[in-house]
Each structure stands twice: as C-alpha cells, then as structure tokens.
C-alpha cells in the first residue's frame, strides 16, 4: 500500500486549540508543508505573535521565539541578522501586524529583511473576543463596532499585501485563501514561492492568508467558510502583487 497523505514532519502530533471551522489550522499545515518541502525544519526559527496563533511552538516542531504583540517582524529582524543561515518566519494576525505592529512590518519589509512573513487576516481580533481590526470590512459588526464599521470614523480596511508590494525591499507579496480545495492548492503554490525567496536569499516575502473566525463572526463553520470566498475575497482580492524573480 502507498501512503498518500500524512502529517508534515514539521507539525507535532497534537490536537490544536483552534475553534471548529477556524482556518489557522489549515494555514499552519501549509506552512509546515512548505518547511518540509525545502527541508529546512532543523534550521528554522519561527517567531510567534500574540493572537490565537500564540501557541505556534505547541504545534510546530521547530525552534520558536515568542514576540510581544505586534513586534514579530522586529524580533525576526534581530534573529535573522544574528543567524543569517537560519530560515526565519513570523506568523502574525491582522491586529498584530496591521494595527499595533504597523511600523515594525513596514520597516522590516522596507529594509528587505531576508525573512518570510505569514499574515493571517480574519478581519477581527480573534483572541481578545472579536473586536474591530484594521481589516474589518466596512459595515461589519464586531464587539467594538456594534453598529458596523463606519468608514468615515474608522477608515477603510487596510490591504496589506498591496501596500507592502509598493516597497522596494519586498521581493514577493501575495494574498491567498484556504476556503476550498482549489484555493488551498493555489495557496500551497504561493507558500512555496514565498519560502523559496528566503531559501535562495532573495529577500523579504509576504503572504497574506484570508482566514475564517466563525466564533467571533457569529457564524457556523460553513457560513464562515463561505464568507471568506465572497465578502472577504471581494474586497481583499486574491493574487500575487509582487514577484520580482518571476518564481
């Protein structure tokens, strides 16, 4: 018999704490598959952020540094400068990266740090109970935007993948979704590209993954999954916004 499906070796054989229908687990798997693919597990240092993904070290069998909220790209900068031969990635939520950590991500990207940033956009602050995030869609109700996000008062949601693609230091920037098999296959391809940039020492790579948070969206898993492909992908277009080496 031939084994056609197995757990990536970079992932531990444990249950996650993620809610049913949460996409963090799928995105973890894609990251782990890419680590396996390039054979870099043993020389990888992951930088965890503060959010629902804070237990990165609990799920990945790799060395991990836990960064303060928003500071993962700065921590990763320090790690990579000290250990240029290691593979270094951050895994950050939208509150973490696009609100409190905006300065750190912009400047790490602009310096062209040779790291890979995985940005999980679920349009809310998952861990703290579903408050408005910089990526919350206009009109979306959250626990701190009970009347819906008001563009005039709260601004419009930030498109980080497009924004970062503007910076000279960024080699690769893409947005993916993991809401159906087709998108997962494409996401897998983009993760590989993003990782290849770093493996080949070709600069900063950024990958934004749209992600469902059924718990804080007040939806069941199926409805939340559907929202990613409709409302969310309408505003946050999937695609590659920068690919300097045409990988």
């Amino acid at each position: 018999m031939q084994q056609v499906f197995k757990r990536p070796i970079s992932l531990k054989d444990v249950q996650t704490h993620f809610c049913p229908g949460c996409h963090h687990g799928t995105i973890h798997r894609l990251v782990a598959e890419a680590l396996d693919e390039f054979g870099v597990q043993g020389r990888t240092i992951g930088v965890a952020s503060v959010g629902c993904s804070v237990f990165l070290y609990g799920y990945f069998d790799i060395d991990v540094v836990e960064a303060p909220h928003g500071r993962a790209s700065a921590v990763a900068t320090g790690v990579k400068r000290a250990r240029p031969d290691n593979f270094v990635f951050t895994y950050q939520g939208d509150g973490d990266l696009a609100a409190i950590g905006t300065a750190e991500i912009i400047h790490a990207a602009n310096r062209g740090e040779d790291i890979t940033v995985i940005f999980v956009n679920n349009t809310t602050y998952g861990m703290t109970g579903g408050q408005m995030a910089p990526t919350t869609l206009v009109g979306q109700k959250t626990s701190t935007s009970p009347y819906g996000r008001n563009q005039h008062k709260d601004g419009a949601p930030i498109r980080m993948a497009e924004l970062l693609a503007q910076l000279e230091g960024v080699a690769f920037s893409a947005r993916v979704a993991v809401n159906n098999p087709k998108n997962i296959i494409d996401a897998k391809r983009q993760f590989k590209k993003a990782f290849r940039y770093q493996v080949e020492g070709k600069g900063f790579s950024f990958i934004e993954a749209l992600s469902a948070c059924p718990t804080n969206w007040g939806m069941n898993a199926i409805a939340a999954n559907e929202r990613v492909g409709s409302e969310m992908a309408d505003y946050f277009k999937l695609g590659v916004f920068k690919n300097t080496d045409n990988m």
Binding site: G78, R81, A82, R111
Partner: peptide, 26 residues
C-alpha cells in the same frame, strides 16, 4: 557585526530580543 538604525526604540529593543534569543551578545 550588524548595526541597525531601527524605526523606533520599540523596534530596537525587539531586535535585541530576537538577536539575544539566538545566544549572541547584543
């Protein structure tokens, strides 16, 4: 060695945190 003029003191201390986590003097 590496010298970085960071975007802020917040970024600098976190770069120090990251470098130090790898065991180097920073």
């Amino acid at each position: 060695g590496e010298f970085i003029q960071a975007e802020s003191e917040i970024a600098s201390i976190n770069m120090l945190l990251g470098a130090s986590a790898t065991g180097v003097r920073a």
